[in-house]
């Protein structure tokens, strides 16, 4: 018996146009469990893109609450959220469900350091939408040991970067770090002799670069889950020049993540 169709029925499928991209593995996208770490500027954009793309299983982790200066970059926050008493992760989860009622999204109000390799093994991919080297190093190392792909984004004004780490093949974040990164750690936790000074600089941030970097993170997640190669290895974006370049990086033979991975 011939298949029955109706005029216009394709327009009832919210993902019909995305399904026309031939290489996207929609079955994998639909079933994949994704962790978004950070529900601030990049996290808002990433969750919005994941929800619209057709992902259906998200966890969002953040320990912070909204302040009014977040509103210029966070598409899922609203005026008044800063006094709602709700955390960023809960608000992002709530608003993401408005984008797609079929989305199963769980807010985790907690610290990045609460996640170890065992927790990370629950996920098919992790997106890092963070704002400091300490949290990045934690996610990078634990995701690497859990053998879960980790796509990290970072911004500073009109500049941004995305690195896709696919264990065990690619270099990790730590492979590309040098003393200038570790100096930031020293400033962040500098010891005065009497107590620890917590240094959190205010960085330039704006929505156009945030959107681009988060979009690239989600696109890399789609590629990895669809079995396509990720960028090799770090994309640097310069919004003023209007350029982006993917630069290669070698695995650091002294990187503890790769040394431990060989042993395990």
């Amino acid at each position: 018996m011939a298949e029955l169709i109706r005029p216009g029925e394709r327009d009832e499928d919210r993902h019909d146009r995305t399904r026309l991209v031939p290489w996207v593995d929609f079955g994998r996208i639909d079933s994949a469990k994704v962790l978004v770490v950070g529900a601030g500027a990049l996290g808002n954009e990433a969750v919005k893109d994941l929800a619209l793309f057709g992902f259906h299983h998200l966890d969002v982790l953040d320990m912070d609450s909204v302040v009014r200066s977040n509103l210029s970059r966070c598409v899922l926050f609203r005026e008044g959220d800063q006094s709602s008493g709700k955390g960023k992760a809960s608000l992002v989860a709530e608003r993401a469900r408005e984008l797609d009622p079929e989305l199963q999204v769980t807010a985790i109000e907690g610290r990045v350091q609460s996640l170890g390799p065992e927790e990370m093994k629950r996920y098919d991919i992790i997106l890092g939408c963070l704002d400091n080297v300490t949290a990045r190093l934690h996610m990078n190392a634990n995701a690497y040991h859990a053998r879960v792909p980790y796509v990290d984004g970072g911004t500073d004004g009109f500049r941004g970067r995305v690195q896709a780490v696919v264990p065990p093949m690619t270099p990790c974040l730590q492979c590309g770090m040098n003393r200038s990164h570790f100096r930031i750690l020293e400033r962040r936790f500098s010891c005065t002799g009497q107590d620890t000074v917590f240094y959190q600089p205010k960085r330039a941030a704006e929505i156009t670069t945030t959107s681009i970097i988060a979009a690239v993170q989600v696109r890399e997640a789609v590629k990895i889950l669809s079995g396509r190669p990720a960028i090799s290895h770090v994309m640097h974006y310069d919004g003023v020049a209007g350029t982006s370049e993917v630069l290669a990086l070698d695995i650091d033979p002294g990187c503890p993540n790769h040394a431990l991975a060989k042993l395990s």
Partner: peptide, 9 residues
């Protein structure tokens, strides 16, 4: 090249 580390504020 600067290596941006912001994005969650």
């Amino acid at each position: 090249i600067p290596d941006p580390e912001g994005g969650n504020r």
